[in-house]
Design a binder for these strands. Structure first.
Lengths: 336, 336
DNA sequence: CTTGGCACTCGCTGCGGTGGAGTGCCAGAG
DNA sequence: CTCTGGCACTCCACCGCAGCGAGTGCCAAG
């Protein structure tokens, strides 16, 4: 079956190229991998793969290099990911088990992920939109200044200062507190926003002010979608193609809005998504790949995590690492 | 006065080298700057400056390059910083005035500073240790689970979950709340820690637990000294000397502990501190300079901000930008 | 102390030649 | 129809070499 062998050749080329960073030729291929055919045969296959757009040569009479389409096929045909070694598994648990709060969990995850994959890691905070309101607290800093504190089921805490039009006394504050809690506690964020909106319309005065402030906090895009980036030092391994590749990437990493779009569509937990080169939505990052997956308690993905790296990367290993961290993280959120 | 001219020569070399990134020779020097002497004279001065360690040549028969010691002298002899253009001044105010809370102020400052200097900017959060306790709030998530919220005079809010040994009811909670607030509100963090410590010793039970938790939050190093980094994309301008210079720098930027040591000793607000090359405490960063200054309300420095960049940088401009941002930031904290 | 002159150093650039890895194609064998 | 060995060909990467030019150090004169 020559079709099957071609896939094997492609796989071998991808593996070699990822390992050596150099165009790979027919002779070296048959030697390093146990292909029981001659170099000439492999050459024919390579020519065919090139015609179909899976390979490219930097210049005539050089070895072949996978194209984005080639990586795509390689990833799609990937049957089983490189399993985590027991050392790696141990590293994951010792790394994450010591975390004390949500911030800590997230920042540890970023470090872990960037170390495991030796790439730039990105972890999004569990999104508000699918979590529920655990409690709302109002703290009087002055008679007409409130601190509005929103506590979510994920352990996330958001707060905001609110200047009231008129001062309120302690009993009025207690009433307010139980009012907004009665309306919002236990609800999904999306539902709480609606409920507080109607409350604001129905009860003008301080209640409306507080409710509006809460709605603002809940729908505030910035706090909605916070994320943490780590492992930028791994970019130093790019070496060549520096200004063209690293600079836009570094810029994108600081533009969290862009990053969020990058993580954007990655779906349910369990499924690892790979975006190769120009498949992504950010044109400056057309020479990088993004490996992401969703995570969250009870297998519904509250947020996304993943890595960004060169298209020439160890996909099986990276995908396995991303999946493993996401699973462990989900488990932790389950417990907390 | 030949001594004076030597300083002028050094200054001219530094300026040219910073601008061109290339070793500068005697002829180009007299042309570009209005030195009314011949190249030969300059050559003599350069040889003298090299003997004294202020200059170096990459190789025989190349131009001269300033040494760290040369930059040091240049900076010390700096009488007046490059004034901010009115456009820059406008940029600063429009950039910072829209900020809504402390997080926002800090992150905007980082962006601003990195854009003004085209270097990597670092801004430390106003330190807890010199700020005071504005309010403490206890929120019952469950009968035996409290959320302890600490609000500081800087607007900073810290929170922590606390599992109690025994459940407390609402009235007991109110008592606890007024107890800890009575002891700590209005105090400096350092004093509040002491007061809460004695409270914990005197009143075992839930009060002690709450007090200990608060002490922990207050002395927690991690929350103590948070900082934000921005403008890493500017590292792309390093171009050459890549792996040797950028990689350790990127690593240091993620190691906030290291960065804090770097900002460390920078003193009162108003004074801009410059650490050149190996003068700093981090040996991996011996080819970079750090320009920092303190900032905070009422001219006492709560925290430090600054930039990290190559020793070959525009010191007058950078120092002016750092000072300008720090002043503006201090003013904002004054008002808030 | 400054200046012009002069010999010298040495990195940078462009050039041709060579070696070798790799290819494409073809004819023959299974 | 597929695989294989052979062969001619193509280029890139590497090397050594020469010429150029910017820059220096030193010296003797103003």
């Amino acid at each position: 079956m020559q079709e099957e062998r071609r896939i094997a050749v492609l796989r071998a080329i991808v593996e070699d190229y990822v390992a050596t960073e150099e165009p790979v030729g027919s002779k070296a291929l048959v030697e390093r991998h146990g292909l029981n055919v001659s170099p000439a045969t492999v050459r024919n296959d390579m020519a065919a793969l090139e015609d179909e757009g899976y390979l490219a040569q930097p210049h005539t009479s050089a070895g072949r290099v996978p194209t984005d389409k080639g990586y795509r096929l390689f990833v799609d045909r990937l049957t089983n990911l490189k399993p985590m070694s027991s050392a790696e598994k141990r590293a994951i648990s010792t790394f994450l088990d010591g975390a004390v709060d949500l911030d800590d969990v997230v920042s540890r995850s970023v470090r872990l992920l960037s170390q495991l994959t030796r790439q730039v890691a990105v972890v999004q905070y569990p999104t508000l939109s699918r979590s529920t309101v655990r409690h709302i607290e109002l703290v009087a800093l002055a008679p007409d200044r409130l601190l509005v504190v929103l506590i979510l089921s994920t352990g996330r805490v958001e707060q905001r200062l609110l200047e009231l039009d008129a001062p309120v006394d302690d009993t009025a504050l207690a009433d307010l507190r139980s009012l907004v809690n009665g309306v919002a506690t236990g609800e999904l964020i999306s539902e709480a926003i609606v409920a507080l909106g109607t409350l604001a319309a129905a009860r003008p005065g301080p209640a409306a002010e507080v409710a509006e402030s809460l709605v603002e906090v809940m729908s505030d895009h910035r706090s909605h979608e916070r994320l943490v980036v780590g492992g930028a030092a791994n970019l130093a391994r790019y070496g060549d193609s520096f200004d063209s590749a690293v600079r836009p990437l570094l810029e994108a990493l600081e533009e969290h809005v862009v990053l969020l779009r990058l993580l954007g569509e990655a779906s349910q937990s369990g499924m690892v998504t790979v975006r190769i080169g120009a498949e992504g939505p950010v044109e400056e990052l057309s020479s990088t790949s993004v490996v992401t997956t969703g995570y969250g308690p009870h297998d519904n993905a509250l947020a996304t995590l993943g890595i960004v790296g060169p298209t020439r990367m160890d996909y099986p290993g990276t995908m396995a690492a991303v999946r493993a961290v996401a699973r462990y993280l989900s488990r932790i959120l389950d417990e907390g």
